[in-house]
């Protein structure tokens, strides 16, 4: 299999072939508390404000070439991309109960959450 690369347009394109997803909709996850920015030049699409935060997988969006490699013109393996839902007030210690943030996050940034799923919110 040749290394997946960006499409002709320069835009990453999803592959038709399914890539096994580690998480499913409804799974509680934690965003890794990792800071590659401290280790050297990088291109990270995981917002700082979500590092170490727990959320719930809302959907599996498909698999896309890893932007962290694309940005440096390296062969970019496919990574599963998730839509992950977070309660908004705990992130900022302010806000309105019930407001949420929905964010695309790649699988290698996710790990199972320490706390189980909330009962019917």
């Amino acid at each position: 299999m040749s290394a997946p690369v960006a499409g002709d347009s320069g835009q990453p394109e999803p592959r038709a072939e399914p890539v096994a997803a580690r998480f499913a909709a409804g799974d509680r996850i934690r965003v890794k508390d990792d800071w590659p920015e401290r280790r050297g030049p990088c291109h990270i699409r995981t917002p700082h404000y979500l590092r170490g935060r727990e959320g719930t997988v809302q959907a599996v969006l498909g698999a896309f070439p890893n932007p962290e490699d694309l940005a440096f013109a390296r062969p970019a393996p496919l990574r599963v991309l998730y839509h992950v839902l977070f309660d908004q007030p705990p992130i900022w210690h302010e806000g309105t109960e019930g407001d949420t943030v929905l964010v695309e996050i790649f699988e290698h940034w996710l790990e199972p959450a320490a706390t189980p799923a909330k009962e019917a919110a």
């Binding site: 990453p12 699409r45 917002p47």
Partner: peptide
């Protein structure tokens, strides 16, 4: 009404 902020961070 609850607000859901969608942060467009990746391929969509």
């Amino acid at each position: 009404t609850k607000i859901r902020v969608v942060d467009s961070t990746a391929d969509y």
